[in-house]
């Protein structure tokens, strides 16, 4: 079975002497997958999407959508794809429903079918009340929902979303995320570009991290975070009985299988009478923390410490992203 998207050795230079905006990028997106293209501003994400959506010619390389070459057969590729661009580009001369209907007309969808689909998508996107409104009167979130509804009018097989959450309020964001999951459930392949780590982590089946036009890493969000050195940190806050030696607890914790390093934070305000007796121990591990967690608890109890708080911090996609792309501002 062919992949939904195949990008091989894609290069795009805007000027012959300028550095390449996309520099030998290769990846595939499987059918029905939500694929996140993550990278800082100017990493080449939007350029890649522009080439894949036939809006820009590559300098070299090959891009296929379901086996259709986007450069050789752009019109055929456009039947398969739909785009939600970074900046909404609705037709201001048309109202909301007409935007949907004309899009379907461009794609040769018969009148009855396009009317039915428009009604259905307006309902799905919560836009039925706005159907007759001019698009310049819509809020940012509403306009974006219209753009998505319009994109879905011709039942594309692969939907490209370029920075879809930029400028959205939290409600619109959650709504957008729910719709993206619906699309995946229906078998639509989704390619989204974002620099929002949380969005990439929660939505994507796989994430490709790009910078300077190159692919730095490609895997599931959990595999990417697990591969990060440093691992998970388990922090336990405890109250200790008088006379309990913290260094004994540290030694016991260090001996646990899987524990890499143990640190002790003395209680804030010193150890004298009247001070807050809570103190914390931090255990770092590179292995699966779920096996270590009960062991840490047991050890603390055995040593006469009373756990009052427990937290586990896994590395986030942001840590992966920063470790790969660096901290300097773009």
């Amino acid at each position: 079975m062919t992949d939904a998207v195949t990008v091989s050795e894609l290069v795009k230079r805007y000027h012959p002497h300028a550095p390449a905006a996309v520099d030998g990028l290769s990846f595939t997106v499987e059918r029905g997958e939500v694929f996140g293209l993550l990278g800082p501003n100017g990493a080449g994400k939007s350029t890649t999407v522009s080439v894949l959506t036939t809006r820009m010619l590559p300098t070299s390389g090959r891009c296929l959508l379901f086996g259709t070459d986007v450069v050789a057969q752009p019109a055929r590729a456009r039947r398969l794809l739909a785009v939600v661009p970074q900046r909404q580009n609705l037709d201001r001369s048309l109202d909301v429903r007409q935007n949907l209907l004309f899009h379907a007309r461009y794609h040769g969808i018969a009148r009855d079918e396009r009317t039915a689909r428009a009604a259905e998508l307006l309902d799905l996107m919560g836009l039925t009340d706005q159907a007759g409104r001019r698009v310049e009167r819509l809020s940012g979130g509403q306009a974006q929902r219209v753009v998505i509804a319009r994109a879905l009018m011709h039942a594309p097989q692969v939907l490209f979303l370029d920075e879809p959450s930029t400028g959205l309020d939290p409600q619109s964001r959650l709504f957008l995320h729910a719709r993206i999951r619906d699309l995946r459930d229906r078998g639509v392949t989704v390619v989204l570009t974002t620099h929002d780590m949380e969005e990439a982590a929660t939505l994507s089946d796989r994430v490709g991290i790009v910078d300077h036009g190159r692919l730095l890493a490609l895997d599931t969000p959990s595999a990417l975070t697990e591969a990060l050195p440093g691992g998970t940190t388990i922090t336990a806050q405890v109250r200790c009985a008088e006379g309990t030696a913290a260094d004994k607890i540290v030694t016991a914790l260090t001996e646990l299988p899987g524990a890499c390093a143990v640190e002790h934070d003395p209680a804030p305000g010193g150890t004298g009478p009247g001070a807050d007796p809570a103190q914390s121990f931090r255990v770092r591990t590179d292995t699966d923390p779920s096996a270590l967690l009960p062991e840490v608890l047991r050890t603390l109890l055995d040593q006469g410490a009373e756990p009052v708080g427990l937290s586990m911090v896994r590395p986030s996609l942001q840590d992966v992203f920063i470790s790969l792309t660096g901290r300097e501002l773009r």
Binding site: E113, R117, D123, L124, Q157, R186
Partner: peptide
């Protein structure tokens, strides 16, 4: 959420949509 109906359930295949 709203239950999607048949027209949107099936993305057009490359063969059918070409």
């Amino acid at each position: 959420m709203t239950t999607p109906t048949t027209t949107l359930n099936e993305p057009a295949g490359p063969e059918t949509s070409s």
